[in-house]
Design a protein around this nucleic acid. Sequence first.
RNA 1: GGUCGGAUGGCCGAGUGGCUAGGCUCAGCUCUGCAAAAGCUGCUACAGCGGUUCGAAUCCGCUUUCGACCUCCA
Length: 497
Amino acid sequence: MSELFIYNSYTRQKEKFEPITPGYAGLYVCGPTVSGESHLGHARPYITFDIVLRYLRHLGYKVRYVRNITDAGHFEEEGREATDKVSEKAVLEKLEPMELVTKYTNLYHNAMHLFNCVDPSIEPTATGHIIEQISMIETIIEKGYAYEKNGSVYFDVVKYAAEYPYGTLSGRVLEDQLETTRELDGQDEKRNKADFALWKNAPPEHIMRWKSPWGYGFPGWHIECSAMSSKYLGETFDIHGGGMDLQFPHHESEIAQSTIAHGHPPVHYWMHNNMITINGKKMGKSYNNVIKFTELFSGNHPILQQAYHPMVVRFYILQTHYRSTLDFSNEALQASEKGFRRLWEAGEFLQKLTHPGAETAADAELESKVKTLCAECPDFMNDDFNTAKVIANLFELAPVIYGMKGGQVNVAAISASTMTLLKTTFKTYLEDVFGMQPLQIQNNNKLDVVMHVLMEIRKEAKKRKDFATSDDIRNKLAASGVNLKDEKDGSMSYSVE
RNA sequence: GGUCGGAUGGCCGAGUGGCUAGGCUCAGCUCUGCAAAAGCUGCUACAGCGGUUCGAAUCCGCUUUCGACCUCCA
């Protein structure tokens, strides 16, 4: 089997994945800021890196997956007084900050479970690691790369850039940063425009503030990820993931901080997922074009023609490579829904197939085709997690499976071992690696009993050629969203919309 | 303004210097009591203009155009 190659944003090329400790992998992903409800755009990184996690585990790695929760509103807003987003909103909604944080954290967790994302091994919160952050800032000051001013602490980017490579990750040149013509207030404390805050002074009216060597305040945005990732994954770890929009300044700042604090860069492989767009524009708070999870799942949003199941959203995201933009549209989601249904049902039927056991394939051409399509799946995943190509191959296998179901293809057309390979491939990729689940949970028993009674009556009617009755049953059920399907072998099945 | 990345058939989207990606839609056919589902067949695209090459959607240049980042942002 081929080896795993990962596109490293830092070097801008695919590199063979070589973990720091053989057999183990450390994965850190920037999690949500729980000052508001998550939206479709947020689903991309969580699902993308869920695949990375699942695939690494599939390959046999023991993975520690750390994904933080940013629950302290340590945001610095240029041009205004430093404010605290969480506390601001708390005032608006007349809630305690912690109440707000809890509310949105719960909503987020709920959505993650609906998406069937594997829980992180550790989910650290920013507020739970104030001490670690302060300690890291102290180290940076001691080493001479940060300075305190009026109770705030800033990282000296200019000094750093003189001695270390700065801007490599985001492809930025420091001089450009310094020459920005934009005039902003509140810059006086900084020695240079490019400097960023490690700690922000906060006046008493701020609800979220902590005591520090520099007075009361709150940590800068970037420091939490550096403090928490190094605590749980080590000063150097394997993979750091996040959205492309975090490349600068967030991840660039993480590299600078950690390099000074620990004496070396923190991450071997930087991975960035691309954005979800809507009408060609990035879906984001600032554009006011977001579709929240609850809206997506309920269909309760002006732009939505219907509700979309979390698994449909997941499939839709996986049908595109993670480094490409993905444009939202009802048509695209609906196409994904149909496609997923078809593929999932193929997989379900496949597992029920029994093979006579012959090792000789009756159809050498088909045998070879199936083998190849299955064998390519790991190669595609190893090529920077190309889920889109794996799905395409599964779709190519679907007609073979349905052909066996419909009688157009003989089960013995492929050998017993190839049948096993086919089954394993569907199970492995659809369920284990892609984490897909059926759209409808098993119907409750009572309904099932009722449906079987109805189907028996209909079968009897059909036997009598009493099609008026049989059609009547089917049509009336269909009107209520319960669809009956007659199978070739005379059996009947139903599905609830 | 600076940096970077895109422009693929009706829609969504892979992708490689030469061989049908795939999905959805649409049309026809087969099967089926009729449906539905499924199978088969068809619709064959790579923004424009130059260049490199035996050969480019894939490499280079220019043009047009869209976007991301440069400020919180997944």
